[in-house]
Design a protein around this nucleic acid. Structure first.
Length: 989
DNA sequence: TTATTCACG
DNA sequence: GACGTACGTGAATAAG
């Protein structure tokens, strides 16, 4: 579609005859042409380009994705010079980052607008560079927004009889579309239209009418009524685009609507119209474009008279835009679009074509209620083909798999549901019917046929697959040979928006049932409703098809709706940076790690189990003897009674349940007083824990099919952004105690392979030193010093065993939000002495105190904390009247930015790791060679690789981890990485 | 189902 | 004057 070649023999995209400027513009054939001014809305463009284009970086590491998009757009426009509709004059208009007269009208104007993403900021000046490289004029004025300059230039040009095209898709500017001017001297008047270069669509009167239902000259009134959340134009509450255009169509103008309001039928809307009439009038002023600005540069200077190739070539090469550079050298040809556009955006632009009118901006009120009877059960190949064809056309499909198990590595596929829009969903049963050969199986498309049909759709780069926890579906489908991509996940969208907010519902805050309730006001069927619970629970494949269709298709339908709602919010609320650049790309990476699994030595676990079990038995007998009676050692209640009632030890503390506490610190206290029984119980507890939680459970966890243990990571498990691990939890395998450490020896590599462990050393303290700006700590890290020793030196002037240990305790206490009592407990001193230690720490490191104060101020005000990469964590109780609750939130809020930034960094490393290894020829291959990433334990990554590849892989792993914050964040401290390898995980440490 | 305890970072 | 004492997790167990 962009193959329109110019026939101009040029070495630049568009080189008009390079002659002295003449008042008459000529076309390629030398015929006079009516001037046509193109006004490019540069600022708006780069925001859109940023969100649509991949995060490219130039050779200097500067992000340039948006600049690249901008450059190709200018190239394309300049190319159109010889087109009858193309530009004869062109200028780029930019917003100057400052106040405008609208802020005087309404101080909150644009107050809601989130700051631009951090990797977009460095691209703003580059936009000017790019414009200059094309030798095009670039206009920006203090106190004026780009829209006003564009309006003023457009009017000035049409008065001269020029045609004008505004290159933008801004709805405010659409007010100008179709404006024509009859100039005084009788020359033919000029008209205004718009061009959306991303959709390659002209916007004229019919397009505006279609979008807003009113003529462009009425649009200002509609915009005033509906308001604008992004610019914070208030509008009238409860009135969206549909209602606004209906009202304007009915009454003609905003003033007429407001005047008629008292006589309208009583309704919430009518009340709002009366109550917010002033807001509507103010909004009208805010959306009014200023058309009489002074023009900083006369129109004539915008004439396109050839683009000198040298500065352009220099610009292109300095940013590594080699394909454009090649075209420039080759003389002609249009710049191509980058191939890997985010399909989500393509879909957003064309959603209206699928019979979901108005499903873009404010979808909620437009959608019909969920209708369980609207869904189709797909039982023939013909119907399956039809759904697949429609999904291809829609470019986005919500998908959900129904299976026999929550464990993706063991689950049997029962069916797949798809949704293309509200109530536009189906269920494709594939494994229904019991195994009883006398039962009649329902008609179904055979599994292998359906898989073969679905595979091209689910692997198509141009079709986005949307799921709720789609990592699960990826892994189920991977076992049927389908590598589903690209994907989006409504659960993760919700997490990146609302972590810590609790979602509103009970239970899993980001689970579908609670999301449907909060965002759609809809109560979904639950799995329990369909399959029952407990002993009577049945497999999904045994559910009758009509019931199964209602449940499964509803899930896909709801997922589709949630996606529309949440995806818009992610863009609007500034969560796109963390979602697009960290969490979304992590999905397939973590899915892959889960499928890899890790080998454990069953025999070794079994013998450890036996050993621990034997020791427990011996201890138990001794304990009963010491107690003078048999009792359940594992019962804290019975143990408490024995110790504090029967044996009369002092120091029993009762909790709120009226029970004595018998936790580790209590038993250690008793043991120190010589209570043998307490000491034995401590040993018993340790061994019993190791046996039941690890040596026994891990044997059960070995997958019979793969012979390995596959954990499941939750990407939304921890409020701070950390992963969590379940079934089994491989993030809490023992290491601190000697007998615990032996369990790690059972995690092993395949023959000829080794396990390699790479972990960030002291990453949270390093981040604290950076974020709180603590020069001595930064210096210590830069020099590779022992950080706790340095802290001791700073605080006490000398480093001894004692002062270092105390410094270490304080360093950690700081990360967790300290209290004098907490520290006193840890240090074994009185609270006032602990307070003195804290004071001393703050005195030596005032940055830390500053960090705590400013972090809490921000959280109290906004309700959330943020990591260096923009991940938000909300704290509902930060202003609670309940002191305990509030202080708990404060401690968590101090910790969250640090723990969360650390989580962001290792996630970024994980996303980059396998591509970096593959680039070095160390990618996984079919015969078990190459490096496989198996586990993540918060600050550690575990790999399995051929013994001979350790030397080649280690420096790459180290570099990717050490540089994971770049280019988005440049830390003041180096990130240290410790690497080790061996036949087992224990050995690798 | 809830509380307690303890494994990890 | 009482509150409850370090952040973030998941699993097993006893007992209601």
């Amino acid at each position: 579609m962009e193959e329109t070649q110019t026939d101009a023999p040029t070495d630049a995209p568009a080189a008009a005859p390079k002659e002295a400027a003449t008042p008459v513009v000529t076309d390629a054939a030398g015929k006079p042409r009516k001037p046509h001014l193109y006004l490019v809305d540069g600022s708006a463009y780069i925001f859109r380009a940023y969100h649509r284009l991949p995060p490219l970086t130039n050779p200097h590491g500067t992000p340039v994705g948006a600049v690249y998009g901008y450059t190709t757009m200018l190239w394309k426009l300049a190319q159109d010079l010889d087109d009858a509709e193309g530009p004869t004059h062109l200028a780029v208009i930019l917003d100057k980052a400052s106040q405008s007269f609208r802020h005087d009208l309404y101080p909150d104007y644009k107050a809601n607008r989130p700051p631009p993403p951090e990797d977009l900021v460095p691209q703003f000046p580059l936009i000017r560079d790019a414009t200059r490289a094309f030798s095009l004029p670039c206009i920006e004025e203090e106190m004026l927004e780009a829209d006003d300059l564009i309006a003023s230039y457009a009017r000035a040009a049409t008065r001269k009889g020029w045609d004008v095209t505004i290159v933008s898709s801004d709805k405010d500017l659409m007010q100008l579309v179709g404006r024509c001017e009859e100039p005084d001297d009788g020359v033919e008047g000029g008209c205004i239209d718009m061009l959306d270069t991303m959709k390659n669509a002209r916007i004229d009167i019919p397009e505006v009418e279609e979008k807003f239902g009113v003529r462009p000259e009425q649009l200002g009134d509609v915009l005033a009524l509906m308001g604008d959340a992004v610019d914070n134009v208030p509008g009238v509450r409860g009135i969206g685009p549909k209602t606004a255009s209906k009202l304007i169509n009915e009454y003609g103008t905003l003033e007429a609507v407001l005047a008629a309001a008292p006589g309208m039928k009583k309704s919430k809307m009518q009340e709002n119209l009366i109550e917010h009439a002033d807001m509507a009038r103010l909004s009208r002023e805010l959306v009014q474009l200023k058309e009489d600005c002074d023009l900083p540069m006369p129109l004539e200077e915008f004439e396109l008279d050839g683009i000198p190739p040298e500065p352009l070539a220099e610009f292109l090469s300095s940013h590594g835009f080699t394909s454009l550079l090649k075209r420039l050298g080759a003389g002609a040809g249009s710049p191509s679009r980058p191939t890997d556009l985010n399909p989500a955006k393509v879909v957003n632009g064309s959603a209206g074509a699928q019979g979901t009118p108005g499903a873009q901006r404010q979808p909620l009120p437009e959608w019909p209620a969920v209708d369980l009877d609207a869904y189709e059960c797909v039982q023939t190949v013909e119907r399956l083909d039809a759904w697949i064809a429609r999904a291809h056309a829609a470019h986005a499909v919500a998908i959900d798999t129904e299976t026999s198990s929550l464990d993706a590595m063991r689950a049997e596929l029962a069916g797949v549901s798809l949704a293309l829009g509200p109530n536009d969903a189906c269920y494709i049963p594939l494994g229904h019917g019991s195994d009883d050969m006398f039962d009649e199986k329902p008609a179904q498309v055979p599994m292998d046929v359906a898989i073969a049909k679905l595979k091209p759709l689910l692997e198509d780069d141009a079709v986005l697959k949307v799921g709720q926890n789609i990592k699960y579906d990826i892994n189920v489908l991977a076992r049927h040979g389908i590598a589903m991509a690209p994907v989006e996940d409504t659960m993760i969208l919700s997490f990146d928006l609302d972590a810590g907010r609790g979602g509103g519902g009970i239970g899993n805050a980001h689970g579908m049932d609670s999301l449907a309730e909060t965002h759609l006001g809809h109560t979904t069927l639950t799995f329990k409703d369909i399959c029952g619970t407990g002993k009577k629970q049945i497999l999904f494949s045994a559910v009758p098809l009509d019931k199964a269709t209602r449940y499964a298709a509803e899930d896909a339908d709801v997922t589709w709706r949630l996606w529309k709602v949440l995806r818009q919010r992610v863009t609007d609320e500034g969560a796109a940076r963390i979602y697009e650049h960290v969490d979304r790309p992590l999905i397939p990476v973590v899915a892959g790690m889960e499928r890899e699994g890790i080998k454990v030595d069953r025999d070794r676990l079994a013998s450890l189990s036996a050993e621990f079990g034997g020791q427990c038995d011996t201890l138990e007998k001794e304990i009963h003897e010491l107690a003078g009676e048999p009792f359940t050692v594992g019962s804290p209640k019975q143990l408490g009674d024995i110790l504090f009632e029967k044996m009369g030890y002092k120091g029993g503390k009762k909790g709120k349940s009226g029970q004595y506490s018998t936790d580790q610190s209590v038993l250690e206290g008793l043991a120190a007083q010589g209570a043998d029984l307490a000491a034995r119980v401590l040993d018993w507890r340790q061994l019993s824990k190791l046996r039941s939680t690890y040596t026994e459970a891990l044997q059960q966890a070995i997958n019979p099919r793969t012979g390995r243990v596959h954990t499941s990571y939750s990407l939304v498990g921890a409020q701070t952004g950390r992963l969590s691990s379940t079934d089994p939890n491989l993030q809490n395998i023992p290491i601190r105690s000697e007998s615990g450490r032996r369990i790690r020896e059972a995690f092993v590599a395949e023959d000829g392979h080794v396990l390699l462990s790479a972990d960030y050393s002291q990453i949270e303290l390093r981040l604290a030193a950076h974020m709180a700006d603590v020069p001595p700590l930064k210096e210590a890290f830069a020099n590779g010093e022992d950080i706790h020793a340095r802290t001791a030196r700073e605080m006490y002037g000398e480093v001894t065993r004692d002062t270092r240990a105390q410094a270490k305790t304080i360093n950690f206490a700081i990360l967790y939000g300290i209290s004098r009592w907490g520290l006193a407990g840890r240090l074994g001193v009185e609270a006032d002495e602990a307070q003195a230690v804290i004071d001393r720490y703050f005195e030596r490191f005032p940055g830390i105190q500053r960090y705590i104060v400013t972090t809490l101020e921000k959280v109290r005000e906004t309700g959330y904390s943020e990591t260096l990469f923009g991940r938000k964590t909300h704290f509902r109780n930060i202003n609670s009247k309940n002191q305990a609750e509030r202080q708990g939130s404060e401690r968590a809020a101090i910790n969250a930015p640090i723990q969360g930034t650390s989580a962001d960094i290792i996630k970024r490393a994980m996303v980059r790791m396998l591509p970096a290894l593959a680039d070095a020829g160390l990618g996984p291959n079919k015969d078990g060679g190459g490096v496989r990433m198996l586990l993540q334990v918060h600050d550690e990554l575990v790999f399995e690789l051929p013994e001979g590849d350790v030397a080649a892989a280690s420096p790459i792993i180290e570099r990717v981890m050490a540089e994971a914050a770049l280019p988005s964040v440049a830390l003041d401290v180096p990130l240290g990485i410790d690497i080790g390898s061996g036949k087992s995980w224990g050995e690798a440490h």
